[in-house]
Amino acid sequence: MADSTKLRRSAPVRIAHLSQIQTFVTDAPLPAGLASICSHRGIEVVEAMEKPAADIDEPGGEPASTVVRLK
């Protein structure tokens, strides 16, 4: 899992190699290069994001989330 602020930066340590990932969860579309690598390796990409603030005023008053699964 990584939010979109982590997708365009490098870090001094590696958590895992892409070969060890089966599902990538993020809040925004992946950059084209990373999306292509994930697709080629069969990594499922899940984009999870909050719905617009207008939905908060609906019954229940809780923000909902939307999940988009890409293959």
Rank of each mutant, 00 (worst) to 15 (best):
S19P: 02
P52A: 09
E44Y: 02
A54C: 08
I21D: 05
M1E: 15
V68R: 15
T23M: 06
E62G: 06
S65H: 09
L30H: 02
T23K: 15
I56N: 04
R9P: 04
S4W: 11
D55H: 04
A32R: 08
R69I: 15
E47H: 12
P63G: 07
I43K: 01
P59Q: 04
P52L: 00
H40K: 06
R8P: 01
I37C: 05
K71W: 04
A32C: 05
G61F: 00
D27V: 00
C38Q: 03
R69W: 06
G42I: 01
P12R: 10
L7M: 09
K71P: 07
A28K: 15
S4F: 09
G42T: 03
E58R: 14
Q22D: 14
A28G: 06
V46C: 07
I56V: 12
D55F: 03
S39H: 14
D55Q: 14
E62A: 07
K51T: 07
K51F: 02
P12I: 07
A48G: 04
P59C: 03
V46E: 13
E44Q: 11
L70W: 11
C38D: 04
T26N: 00
P59I: 03
S39G: 10
L18D: 12
Q22A: 13
G60V: 01
E50F: 12
R69H: 13
V67A: 13
P59G: 03
D3F: 06
E44L: 13
S19I: 04
I56A: 11
E58P: 01
V45D: 00
A2T: 09
K51M: 08
A2C: 14
A54P: 02
G33P: 00
R41P: 01
S36E: 12
G42S: 03
A48Q: 07
I56H: 05
V67H: 08
R41A: 05
K6G: 15
V68T: 14
V25L: 09
F24L: 15
I15L: 14
G33S: 06
D27Q: 00
V68S: 09
S4E: 13
V67R: 10
A53V: 05
R41I: 01
P52W: 01
V13P: 01
P59R: 06
